[in-house]
Design a protein around this nucleic acid. Structure first.
Lengths: 199, 199
DNA sequence: GTCTATAACGTGATAGAC
DNA sequence: GTCTATCACGTTATAGAC
């Protein structure tokens, strides 16, 4: 016999993670509360605590899910079929979507609030950063080797610069409008020796 | 007759602004309280409220002071005597000092917490961003005209990219160590056509 | 799994003495 | 200018019923 539920099993947990991710990317860790979460989901705060005992648990889980999502995304056949430089553009497309949603990069949030973030959340953010850096550096190195890019300097330095420019660009876009992220992206394309007139 | 004070007139206000700036750049707006300020200054919280009635007032005043400091800095004769590209390097030196102090760029903090920041603070941050962007774009345009840089694309786009990379680099440095800011800076020099082996 | 109720605490802010 | 005392409120978190 099936007991009726307002949501399927595991659905509330997923919705909490999704809303918490959005709040983390728009208001920062200290800028939202369990009340924001509960209100947004149509439940009470203890329901949230049932799924994530503490706010620190929740933040770590959200960042962990960013890592999982990235690991999944980068293994997609449709992505892996693309040339290396197009894979990097696809990553910048992800960031561009954040702009449209008024969000910043989770690594930007973590960087700004690092000193006041729960330790477990810091560790997840650091792991995400390493994974993203290594992936980007590999794409950049391959793109240069295959003549799709012409940047000088090491792929590792360049990967960090691309990450920094992208997350900084998201933040500038919040201060001054989405065009500023587009401007940063144009400058990035120019600097990497690709085609600056691309979308 | 002079009444003795623990601090000279106006000194406490300055110290509050300095400590608040440091806390804003390390913990974010929602990551510090009047208690942090009072404890750090050896006073009680109402003493802070005397100088800045609300936290919103304080945040706006701190960002206003960043604007004033930048306006003063960029007019210094010793800076203005430098070639345009060296002026831009001097700006990156300022950011590098933040790295050593474990701070992020105030514009990064404002970008991340934008949606939960007091309106007056948002306006000051936006004004600072515009002033910095215009100054950087002018230096970059002059540097290219005088053959000190060789970047392609518009000076405005490039200025935004430099700002984004610098503030993103500060945040990455918090996650993974100061070397990452140095790496971003190297990549920046390479991309702008300067000498990447500079300090 | 979600609820009501409540505890325990931190925070922004004010009143009024000194 | 700074203090003590205090307030109102929001926040994280728990207990126990359903």
């Amino acid at each position: 016999m099936v007991v009726s539920r307002r949501r399927p099993r595991g659905e509330t947990r997923r919705e909490i993670l999704a809303l918490a991710a959005r709040l983390l990317q728009t208001r920062g860790y200290h800028g939202f509360s369990f009340h924001h979460l509960a209100e947004g989901l149509g439940v009470r705060t203890p329901a949230v605590h049932y799924h994530f005992p503490t706010k620190a648990d929740l933040a770590a889980a959200v960042l962990r899910r960013f890592r999982d999502d990235f690991a999944w995304w980068r293994e997609q056949p449709t992505l892996r079929a693309l040339p290396a430089h197009a894979q990097m553009e696809a990553f910048l497309d992800l960031e561009a979507r954040y702009v449209a949603e008024g969000k910043v990069c989770p690594l930007g949030m973590a960087g700004v609030e690092f000193a006041s973030l729960p330790p477990a959340a810091c560790r997840e953010a650091q792991a995400l950063m390493h994974e993203l850096r290594d992936w980007l550096a590999a794409r950049l190195a391959a793109a240069r080797e295959q003549g799709q890019c012409t940047f000088a300097g090491s792929a590792e330095d360049t990967a960090l610069a691309v990450m920094a420019a992208a997350q900084g660009g998201l933040q500038l876009a919040r201060l001054n409008g989405a065009d500023d992220f587009a401007a940063v992206r144009r400058a990035l394309r120019t600097a990497l020796g690709g085609d600056p007139s691309a979308p």
